[in-house]
Computed example of a mutant assay.
Amino acid sequence: MLVKSLLGEFEFEAENTRKLLQAIPDSALNFKPSDKSWTTGQLASHIAEVYNWYQPTLHQDVFDMSTYKYDKGDISKASNIVAKFEENVKAARKALESATDESMSKNWKMTMGSDEPVFPEMPRAQVVRGFLFNHLYHHRGEMVIYLRSTGNKPPGIYGPTFEESQR
């Protein structure tokens, strides 16, 4: 039942993520709100990449980020980022569909080249909610700001946008 519930949220939110990534024009890809920020293209690539973390999160007890190979792909065009998202979301769906409710209660940890966890070890279900789902929602919120800052319109994710409601 737990995996089925997570899968329902996954499907709903993947569609929202898709709409957001599809709203990014190529002209906004190099925008950076500050020197310390990612460009729009880098942020969009990261959003697409989070879906690549499902398999190791759901099917490994330890995820060593020091050995992880980040594959941002070609971020020179927004359509390339959307294509990478589609590839990653398909693999994420498969990883989630093959998870079990029993596996969700097992502890999981992330490391960075040693046995020491990056953050406290916790049940996999908590990791899915925090590390995968909520992490993604946080970055989507940033992307809405990036789109507005470049004069572009974000799509409505949980109903009409402010701009749509003012019509």
Score class of each variant (00 low, 15 high):
S5D: 15
L7V: 01
E11A: 15
E13V: 05
E15P: 10
N16A: 15
I24M: 03
P25Y: 00
S27A: 12
A28E: 02
A28V: 02
D35F: 11
K36C: 09
K36W: 10
W38D: 08
T39V: 10
T39P: 10
G41V: 09
Q42H: 09
L43S: 07
S45A: 15
H46D: 14
H46S: 10
I47Y: 09
Y51W: 07
N52I: 00
D61Y: 02
D61Q: 06
F63A: 08
S66R: 09
Y68P: 01
K69P: 00
K69H: 09
K69Q: 14
G73I: 06
G73R: 14
G73D: 08
S76Y: 07
S76G: 13
K77A: 03
I81E: 07
V82I: 05
F85N: 04
A91M: 04
A92D: 05
R93S: 12
E97W: 08
A99H: 13
E102T: 05
S103W: 01
M104A: 08
K106F: 01
W108I: 02
K109L: 03
M110P: 06
M110T: 12
M112R: 14
G113S: 05
D115Y: 09
M122V: 08
M122E: 15
Q126H: 13
Q126E: 13
V127Y: 00
R129S: 11
L132I: 10
F133G: 04
H135C: 11
L136A: 14
H138M: 15
H138Q: 14
H138K: 07
H138T: 08
R140S: 09
R140W: 07
R140T: 08
E142K: 01
V144I: 15
V144N: 14
I145W: 09
Y146R: 09
L147C: 08
R148L: 12
R148K: 13
S149E: 13
S149Q: 15
G151C: 04
G151R: 03
P154T: 03
P155K: 04
Y158S: 09
Y158H: 13
F162L: 15
E163F: 02
E163M: 04
E164Q: 11
E164T: 01
R167D: 12
